[in-house]
Simulated assay, not measured.
Amino acid sequence: MTYRDIFIGILMEATGLPRGEIESVVLEAERNPLVKQRHEEEIPDDRAERIMTDLRSDLGGVRRWLLEGWNRAHRTSSPREQ
């Protein structure tokens, strides 16, 4: 399992969106030169399960993190109406 697999799985659980939509967003984000994580790195199954369990225990925090990121992106990408 890769970090990308974990990330996609948790985002699917947190948002209820289908895999294809989540994958396209993750792959687009990975093309950003500011993203330096190694999502393709394979990790042992026991470590992957621990990470998934930890993230599942705080899906509300994952949702907050997504909303904060969306708000930041929205503020920086579109001019405010006056």
Rank of each mutant, 00 (worst) to 15 (best):
T2F: 05
T2A: 05
Y3E: 04
D5T: 12
D5P: 01
F7G: 00
F7L: 15
I8N: 06
G9K: 07
I10H: 01
L11Y: 06
M12N: 00
G16A: 11
P18L: 02
R19S: 09
G20S: 13
G20R: 06
E23R: 03
V26C: 06
L27M: 07
L27N: 13
A29E: 02
A29H: 01
A29C: 08
E30V: 00
N32G: 02
P33F: 10
P33T: 02
L34E: 07
V35Y: 10
K36G: 04
Q37T: 08
R38L: 12
R38C: 07
R38W: 09
H39K: 03
H39F: 15
E40I: 02
E40T: 09
E40H: 11
E42V: 12
E42Q: 11
I43L: 14
D45Q: 08
D45L: 10
D46N: 07
A48E: 03
E49D: 11
E49F: 09
I51D: 04
M52N: 02
T53P: 00
D54H: 10
D54S: 13
L55E: 04
S57K: 10
S57E: 12
S57Y: 05
D58Q: 09
G60A: 14
G61L: 06
G61P: 04
G61F: 11
V62T: 08
R63N: 02
R63W: 03
R63D: 03
R63K: 13
R63H: 04
W65Y: 14
W65R: 05
L66W: 09
L66V: 11
E68T: 08
E68K: 04
W70H: 11
N71F: 13
N71S: 09
N71G: 01
R72L: 15
A73V: 11
A73N: 04
R75K: 13
T76H: 07
S78E: 08
